[in-house]
Nucleic acid binder design. Structure first.
Lengths: 162, 162
DNA sequence: CTATATGCAAAACGTTTGCATCCCT
DNA sequence: AGGGATGCAAACGTTTTGCATATAG
């Protein structure tokens, strides 16, 4: 979904809920759906800085409130990955993916595996559950260039338990 | 592992590290390994209150520090489940399990599924990863008595994204 | 015009840390 | 005796909230 499409969808959702379309909401949505963030799982702080650079007057709280709003509208999903900050990613309805986090460089990969999801559903059923959603994060070491070099030298900066 | 066994193991680990056995560490470990907590995934706050009820003088920071210590000694594992509080569970070496959280009553079940873990490893390998650890939480609805009744009546108190 | 949204600052939250004191070893 | 451990309170980083003001519908 492009930024423009996202803004349109947001406006439709706002109208449905009787809420207002504002310049801030449009701007934050546009920044969030910017191609540079598509794989980036930005934190609110990151988004705030990006937004601020385009409109100095936007406040912190507005970014927090707008991201919550995007979640409610189904346009974003919050994720708790490797640190204690909430990260957001654009949501494409019907699609689901999980995460692979590199313990050395912190890089985040995405994957989707229907076989695993089927087994999750079966396991849940064994306990009398119906799965509504799930979170799965695998922690390991990636083979990207900066990371391989770093792996030998410095200690892991990522705490998987955090 | 019983509380007594845990304390013994802790003392061995402390000695190995040149650290000190104290009444507080023993008490916190004993409380944490109390049968009432075995399935409970207590937060630091819960543990603190339990500990405090047995020894009024124990401080908050000591519970935090001791839980971190237990993690280092391999006696506890921190978990981020459905809220923003770190929960701890007793660790039995070599064993791993994942969690199933009821969206209605917040009850936490545990499960283990080697088939899923094998698929996770394969998926990671596909991306050039070796999995060091993983977190998997399934959110759904359980069939316990209070929960089934509640499901129809009140909204879900658990936020899976938190 | 009115309800909603905003920006700011202050509060809240879970957690960590500095420091004087205490107490295992 | 001495280094680690404790309790307290203050600091921390992230997120939420109260409130006066601004603005969309």
């Amino acid at each position: 979904m492009t930024g423009e499409q996202a803004i349109e969808e947001l406006e439709r959702a706002l109208q449905r809920k009787g809420l207002k379309t504002t310049a801030q909401r449009r701007l934050i949505t546009e920044v969030f759906f910017d191609p540079q963030f598509r794989q980036d799982h930005p934190t609110v702080d990151t988004l705030y800085r990006q937004v601020k650079s385009r409109d100095q007057s936007v406040g912190f709280a507005t970014v927090y409130r707008t991201m919550k709003l995007l979640v409610e509208c189904g346009l974003a999903s919050p994720r708790q990955l490797h640190d204690n900050q909430t990260r957001y990613e654009p949501e494409s309805p019907g699609e689901h993916h999980d995460h692979l986090v590199c313990l050395d460089c912190g890089h985040i990969f995405e994957f989707e595996n229907e076989e695993i999801e089927a087994l999750q559903a079966r396991e849940a059923a064994r306990h009398g559950f119906v799965v509504a959603e799930h979170r799965m994060v695998l922690y390991g070491r990636c083979q990207r260039d900066p990371c391989e070099r770093r792996a030998a030298a410095t200690p892991a900066p990522v705490d998987p338990s955090a």
